[in-house]
């Protein structure tokens, strides 16, 4: 459904994300009752890691990427991950403590 919309309107967003947003809106507006999708979604999500194994296994064609200089990729990943964590955690904790004052931004 999301994939279809994307092709129809050529929206530059992953189809699954469009689908997620549409489904969220449909649930909020009660177009889709929760009971219709609840158990199906729970089933899909409980196996979620299984579904991305095949794509991840594809890395066997790219092992050479991590050789030599490639080790620095791990350094980049760690640094950037920690900065992301600090940014998200500090901002949200700060704002949640002064929730009223933060209302003009959203």
């Amino acid at each position: 459904m999301g994939q279809l919309l994307r092709e129809l309107f050529s929206i530059p967003l992953p189809g699954s994300i469009l689908g997620l947003m549409l489904m969220f809106i449909a649930l909020l507006l009660k177009i889709v009752p929760l009971e219709w999708v609840d158990s199906g979604a729970a089933l899909l999500l409980s196996f979620l890691p299984l579904f991305f194994i095949p794509a991840t296994v594809g890395v066997i064609d790219y092992f050479d990427v991590f050789a030599g200089k490639g080790a620095f990729l791990v350094v980049v990943l760690i640094l950037s991950t920690l900065l992301t964590m600090a940014g998200a955690a500090l901002t949200s904790q700060h704002l949640s403590r002064r929730f009223e004052a933060g209302k003009e931004r959203s």
């Binding site: 699954s16 689908g19 489904m23 929760l34 199906g40 899909l44 579904f51």
Partner: peptide, 15 residues
């Protein structure tokens, strides 16, 4: 297996 991935992401809307 890969093909189920898209629908599974849509399911994240439920939680």
């Amino acid at each position: 297996i890969d093909r189920i991935l898209g629908p599974a992401v849509v399911a994240l809307a439920i939680p």
